[in-house]
Amino acid sequence: MVLTMMAAIGIGIKQEKKMPTVVAESELKKRNEELEKELRESKEREEQMKRELQSAWERLRVAEEAEERLCSQLGELEAEAVYQARDYHARIVSLMDQLSRAQSLLLKTSASSISLPSSS
């Protein structure tokens, strides 16, 4: 009977040692599943971020092309404005010359009419 008791105690000890191993194994499996789930979620987030980055990159490319077109158009408008300003300036100078000649003629005409003796 003592042997039977010792055998039972020995078996009990062996089972106690196996139980923590089974529990630890179960916890490790559970933890492994959690980590695998987190990894899948992380990969999904990474793919989503890649798509968003690609979309942002495409929007940036479109914006840069639009900026280039606008700069080109602005340059053309500035050149046109310079040409118009030169034309207006030339027109103003021409009109000033005409006005100056007209004033000179008026002064000569009025001076000659004053210097003429009146016949009455």
Results as ranks from 00 to 15, higher is better:
Met1Tyr: 04
Met1Arg: 01
Val2Ala: 11
Leu3Ser: 10
Thr4Trp: 08
Met5Trp: 03
Met6Cys: 03
Ala8Met: 10
Ile9Gly: 00
Ile9His: 03
Gly10Asn: 09
Gly12Pro: 00
Gly12Trp: 05
Ile13Cys: 04
Lys14Thr: 09
Gln15Val: 14
Lys17Leu: 14
Lys17Arg: 14
Lys18Cys: 02
Met19Asp: 13
Thr21Trp: 05
Thr21Gly: 04
Ala24Thr: 07
Ala24Glu: 13
Ala24Arg: 07
Glu25Leu: 12
Glu25Trp: 01
Ser26Asn: 08
Glu27Tyr: 06
Lys29Ser: 09
Lys29Thr: 10
Lys30Cys: 02
Arg31Glu: 15
Arg31Tyr: 09
Asn32Asp: 12
Glu34Leu: 12
Leu35Asn: 01
Leu35Ala: 04
Lys37Asn: 06
Leu39Lys: 15
Leu39His: 12
Arg40Cys: 00
Arg40Ser: 09
Glu41Tyr: 03
Lys43Tyr: 09
Glu44Ile: 14
Arg45Asp: 08
Glu46Val: 10
Glu47Cys: 00
Glu47Lys: 13
Glu47Tyr: 06
Gln48Cys: 01
Gln48Ala: 12
Arg51Ala: 14
Arg51Thr: 05
Glu52Ala: 14
Gln54Glu: 15
Gln54Pro: 00
Ser55Asn: 14
Ala56Cys: 01
Ala56Ile: 10
Trp57Glu: 15
Trp57Met: 13
Trp57Ile: 11
Arg61Thr: 08
Arg61Phe: 06
Ala63Cys: 02
Glu65Pro: 00
Glu65Arg: 07
Glu67Cys: 06
Glu67Met: 13
Arg69Glu: 09
Arg69Lys: 12
Ser72Tyr: 11
Leu74Asp: 11
Leu74Arg: 14
Glu76Val: 12
Glu76Thr: 09
Ala79Ser: 14
Glu80Phe: 02
Ala81Pro: 00
Val82Phe: 08
Val82Glu: 15
Tyr83Cys: 08
Tyr83Ser: 15
Ala85Arg: 07
Arg86Ser: 10
Arg86Asn: 12
Asp87Glu: 13
Tyr88Lys: 11
Tyr88Asn: 09
His89Phe: 10
His89Ser: 07
Ala90Val: 01
Ala90Tyr: 04
Arg91Leu: 08
Ser94Thr: 13
Met96Ser: 11
Asp97Asn: 07
Asp97Gly: 02
Gln98Leu: 09
Gln98Ile: 07
Leu99Tyr: 07
Ser100Lys: 11
Ser100Tyr: 06
Ser100Ile: 04
Gln103Asp: 10
Ser104Asp: 10
Leu105Glu: 14
Leu105Thr: 04
Leu105Pro: 00
Leu107Tyr: 02
Thr109Met: 11
Ala111Asp: 07
Ser112Trp: 02
Ser113Tyr: 06
Ile114Asp: 02
Ser115Gly: 01
Leu116Tyr: 03
Ser118Thr: 03
Ser119Arg: 07
Ser119Cys: 05
Ser119Asn: 04
